[in-house]
């Protein structure tokens, strides 16, 4: 038995302890937005935010998440009062997807990634410290999310625009 907070709602799980967080969500009506592409941590389709950090939900068992806050793609828009989250809007505007199957994972990953950049977490492109959000920086940090439709360039456009929009509004750096 584990108690989780999924998109702000307290949920008590009594699922089989072998069940991944991903399967736990996907078998619940209204939470199928989180996708399964590989079940192996190799594609990123199952990415969601666990206590604010992006994780592959196929690589974590639901019972490990006791007490955690889970934000799925459905929760991102709920947090905006059923409006699209700015990242979701940008994905539509820049056509950051085609079939849409990798998309919830890409969007959750992008939201989590901008947090990491804001925290000055290092990547292969930039070491620890202040990060300038260049295209290659985004490309590197989003390389855990496969898109077989090949929407990568548009995904980078969408993320850059969201980050710039955010910094315009807050006056802070583009992260």
């Amino acid at each position: 038995m584990a108690v989780l907070y999924i998109n702000g709602k307290q949920v008590t799980l009594d699922d089989d302890p072998r069940t991944t967080l991903l399967d736990t969500l996907r078998e619940r009506p209204g939470l199928t937005g989180t996708k399964k592409g590989c079940d192996h941590g190799q594609c990123g389709a199952c990415t969601l935010l666990l206590d604010g950090r992006r994780v592959n939900s196929c690589l974590i068992l639901a019972i490990q998440c006791e007490g955690s806050e889970v934000t799925t793609i459905e929760g991102l828009s709920q947090s905006q009062g059923e409006q699209l989250h700015p990242m979701q809007q940008a994905f539509v505007k820049y056509d950051g997807f085609q079939c849409g199957y990798c998309t919830p994972g890409q969007i959750c990953s992008a939201v989590g990634m901008l947090e990491e950049v804001g925290n000055g977490e290092p990547s292969d492109v930039t070491g620890r410290g202040e990060v300038t959000l260049s295209r290659v920086e985004i490309q590197e940090r989003m390389s855990g999310n496969l898109c077989r439709c090949g929407a990568y360039a548009n995904i980078v456009d969408a993320i850059l625009d969201t980050a710039n929009e955010h910094s315009r509004k807050t006056g802070g750096p583009a992260t």
């Binding site: 009506p29 937005g33 979701q88 994905f91 539509v92 849409g100 969007i107």
Partner: peptide, 25 residues
């Protein structure tokens, strides 16, 4: 024109084959 199914896809509400809900699971 932006994809008309875009809002459904970016919010996870587009139902792919394995995701259709039934009265009886």
């Amino acid at each position: 024109l932006d994809r008309v199914d875009g809002p459904l896809k970016v919010t996870g509400r587009a139902t792919y084959a394995a995701e259709h809900a039934f009265d009886q699971p």
